[in-house]
Design a protein around this nucleic acid. Sequence first.
RNA 1: GGGCGCGUAGCUCAAUGGCAGAGCAGUGGCCUUUUAAGCCAUUGGUUGAGAGUUCGAAUCUCUCCGCGCUCACCA
Length: 505
Amino acid sequence: MSEYTSLEKIRLQKIEELRAEGIEPYPTRAERTHTSAEAIAAFEAAGDGVEVKATLAGRIRATRAMGKLSFAHIEDGAGKVQLFFRINELTQPRVDFFNKMFDIGDFIQASGVMFRTKTGEATLHVHDFKLLAKSVSPLPADKDVTQEDGTVVRFAALEDPELRARQRYADLAVNPEVRETFRKRAALIKTLRTFLDNHGFLEVETPILQPLYGGAAARPFETHHNELDQDMYLRISFELYLKRLLVGNLERVYEIGRDFRNEGVSYKHNPEFTQLEFYWAYADYLQVMELTEQMVSYAAEKVSGSTKVKYSEHEIDFTPPWKRLEMRAGIKETSGIDIAEHPTAESLLKAILAKGRTPDPKSTRGKLIDFLLSEYLEPTLIQPTFLYNYPRDISPLAKSMPGDPLTVERFEGYVAGFELCNAFTELNDPLDQEQRFLEMGRDYEAGDEEKHPMDEDYLRAMRYGMPPNGGFGMGVDRLAMLLTNKHSIREVLLFPALRKEEFGE
RNA sequence: GGGCGCGUAGCUCAAUGGCAGAGCAGUGGCCUUUUAAGCCAUUGGUUGAGAGUUCGAAUCUCUCCGCGCUCACCA
């Protein structure tokens, strides 16, 4: 345990004094009749001369002592309300007791009658009060005031992004808009569930701890089961397990849960993130496209109140239909390179080098196309756009287009210049799938660390027969960013991954 | 992992080679309708850690730690 600061020592001293006076600083039970918002609403609704009694409970956020009277603001889950202490009802020693022993950050219970102050604020006139929990460490100091025009001005807010993420509890305690962000996030996830439930999808849970990983090109976290003496992996996607369920005649399934990828961290990547995947029997990627724009616009409407949301300097319009752009055309338009004219990696690499760009020279053709996509096309895709038809060699689980074996029926949804979702007409041919795994295995030999291992059980499932189907995956955190106007994934994760903190011994 | 930047009181920030400061928070006092309450007084620092240069380092150099931005990576 680290040393207490001088401010903390003063508060610890107060705790001792309270106990010496027979006052428990952490009493077991609390009472309240109204939340702050309920008390104010009841007061506003009551007619003149009607007394509104209330017992409130919350955390002290500001105090203003004036000798024979004191004001304080407390905050609870519903908002803030002002308390008014006066010697007439409480006696001077009780007012002094409040001023001396209560600090910002303490939890208090106060009973009294609602009234309006000279400045018009609905306030609890306190007749009795009680400490509910003493705060030892001062919250990161923060004061704000709502001005007459309704704007909130914040003074000395807690802003350090590291501290805010590491001590999210303090961030939440002092920054109400952070609480609002996470309420919106919860609403988003609930909305996605409702939408899929209403469309006949069954929510399922598949293993997070897996003997073999797959379904995406990513490096996994590895762990070990002691009793089984077996290496295990944290899943990098849900895909292969959800598609096993289609074999089992569950026609529409979805899962919302955590994926883990042992890779870099950035404003749009966290090592664990929330993924939504669904698989839809007898549908293809075009039907999935339509369901996607419906689902996302529905979520935007429910969470933000409109299918148009402000993001940075843009207004993103999720109203269907979204723009559809064939990937080849989009790349040609933005980079000037027509990938169809370059059927080999060598030829395409030459064309890119001629532009003065330098991709990894060992890249496959698919990787080069992806390079063009992210370098030229992706930043231009601000409004929701479906890019469709992808090269086969970077899509080992997607079905080829009839008559064009090198292209697969796949789309990705882009918004605000980043990838939001990824979907395809799923490969359901077990022999083709085995071939793709083998190709991936060869790439793996060549040193790529992100290739699919052969999943024999998945192939066994496929051999029983899998209905044709469309599959879909979406980064829920990224959608949460879009709907809350946040520009880092850390802002929509309560506890984002951070380097381990060193505490003194 | 590479590049750039940042780290000063509990919080937000000054001080660019010459006495480490302000506002808020805290502590003591005055104050019966305040709301960033006000007024008077006052506490609080190993300037992220360590080493070096210098008469003198928050400031310059090096190493380390942490964070941010960015590149790579992330089909």
